[in-house]
Write a protein that binds this DNA or RNA. Sequence first.
DNA 1: CACTTGTCCTGTCATGCCGTCAGCTTACCG
DNA 2: CGGTAAGCTGACGGCATGACAGGACAAGTG
Lengths: 215, 215
Amino acid sequence: MTGQVRTVDGRVAGRRGQATRQKLLDCLSEMLSSSPYRDVKVIDVARKAGTSPATFYQYFPDVEGAVLEIAEHMAAEGAELAELLEGRSWAGRSGWQTAQDLVDGFLDFWRRHDAILRVVDLGAAEGDKRFNKIRIKILNAVTGSLTEAISQLQAKGRVDKDVNPAAIAGALVTMLTSVASHQKAFTAWGVKKDQLKPNIALLVHLGVTGRKPTK
Amino acid sequence: MTGQVRTVDGRVAGRRGQATRQKLLDCLSEMLSSSPYRDVKVIDVARKAGTSPATFYQYFPDVEGAVLEIAEHMAAEGAELAELLEGRSWAGRSGWQTAQDLVDGFLDFWRRHDAILRVVDLGAAEGDKRFNKIRIKILNAVTGSLTEAISQLQAKGRVDKDVNPAAIAGALVTMLTSVASHQKAFTAWGVKKDQLKPNIALLVHLGVTGRKPTK
DNA sequence: CACTTGTCCTGTCATGCCGTCAGCTTACCG
DNA sequence: CGGTAAGCTGACGGCATGACAGGACAAGTG
C-alpha cells in the first residue's frame, strides 16, 4: 500500500530507522494529547523519543508532515466506523438500536483519537486540502452508509422527496464529530453525561427516518 | 464594563496607545484569516501593523492572549444571534421560517468570523477553560432559547417526556457550528451549496418539534 | 578477519523568532 | 519650560529550525 518508507532525502529506511520513525510518531501523538497544538515543538518530540531534532527532520519535513502521517494511519483505522452500520436496519425497534450503537461507536472512536482529530479538524477548517481529504476519508464510510439508508427510505416514500440524503447524512455525521469534541460544553448547559448519548441517538434517528424511534 | 485598558506592565493606555493596540488586534485578525494558526508569529503581526514585536508584548502577554481579546469582542457581537430567535414561534408554517432564519443567520455569523471561531473551537476542544467560556457565551443565547422552546413543547405534551431539551438544543447548535466550519466537506459529498441550508433547517425543525415542518 | 556498503544518528552551524529590558522619544500639564 | 507618564524600539540572550558533513553501526563479501 504505502510502498517503502523513505527518509526526507530519499533513502529507504531499514528496520532500525523505521523503529525510530515510529517512536517519533508515538511521542508526537502523546505530545498532542498533553499540550496545545500550537506549542508542540520538534525539539520536545525529539527529546521525548530520546533522540535529536536532526533525526526528526530526517523522517519528516516538519511537525505538520508528521501529524499528517499519524492522521493517515488513523484514517485507515477509521474503517471500523463503517462496521457500525454494516447491514443494520433503520426500521422499528432495531432502528433505535442502530442509532444508539452508531452514536456509541462514534463517540468512542473520537474519544480514543481526540488529540489528532482536533488537529485534522483545524487543518480542514483552515482549508488545507490534505487534512480535508483525511477528514472526509474517515467520515465517508458512515456518511455514505447513512445517505444510502435515507435514500432507500425516500424511495419507499417514507421520507419526503425534497430531502437531500447526502446533506442530512453529512450534517448528522458532522454533528457527531462536534458533539464528540465539545462534550464539556454540554455539562455547562446542565446536561448530564448519561443523558447525552440517548438524545443524540434520538436526533440521528429523527434525521435518518424523519420519525421518532419506537423504543 | 472593562474598566481601563492597561499595558502588561500596568500603565494605563492613552489614546495613541489604544489605537496601536487596536491596530495590532486588527492585523492579527487578518493574519488568522490568511495563514494557519500555528504559523502566526508575533513578528509578522507587528510588521504588518508597522510597529515592533516589543510593542506587541507591551499590550499582550502572547499571541494567545491577543486572540482571547478578539474572541471576547466577537462574543459580545454574538448577541445578534439571540435576536434570531427573539419572540419567534415554532408552530406551523412560521416554525419552518424560524428554522430557516436561524440557520441562515447562524451560518452567516460563522462565515463572518470564521478565522477567530476556528481558534476558539480549537482552544475549547483542547480543554482551555477561557476559550470554552467564550464559546459557550456565544452559543448560550441560541442554546438557551432553543432549550426553552423545546421545554414548552414538552410541557404541552407535543414532545416526549424523556427528551432532554438542553441536550437536543446543544446538539443542534453544535451541529450548526460544525456545518459552518466544514462546508467544504459537503461539496465533497455531492451536496450543492443551495441545498445545504434547507436540509439543515429541516434537521433543526425536526430536533426542536419532533415533527416535519409544514412548508 | 579486514573491507565495503549502505543505513542511521548526531554535532554543528546559520538563520530567525521569542520575550525582556533599558532607554529614548513623544505628548500632556502646570 | 521643566516634569512626568505614556509610547516605542534597539539590542540581547535563548531557543527552535533546518541543513550538512561526517561518525557509528550492522550486515554482507572476499
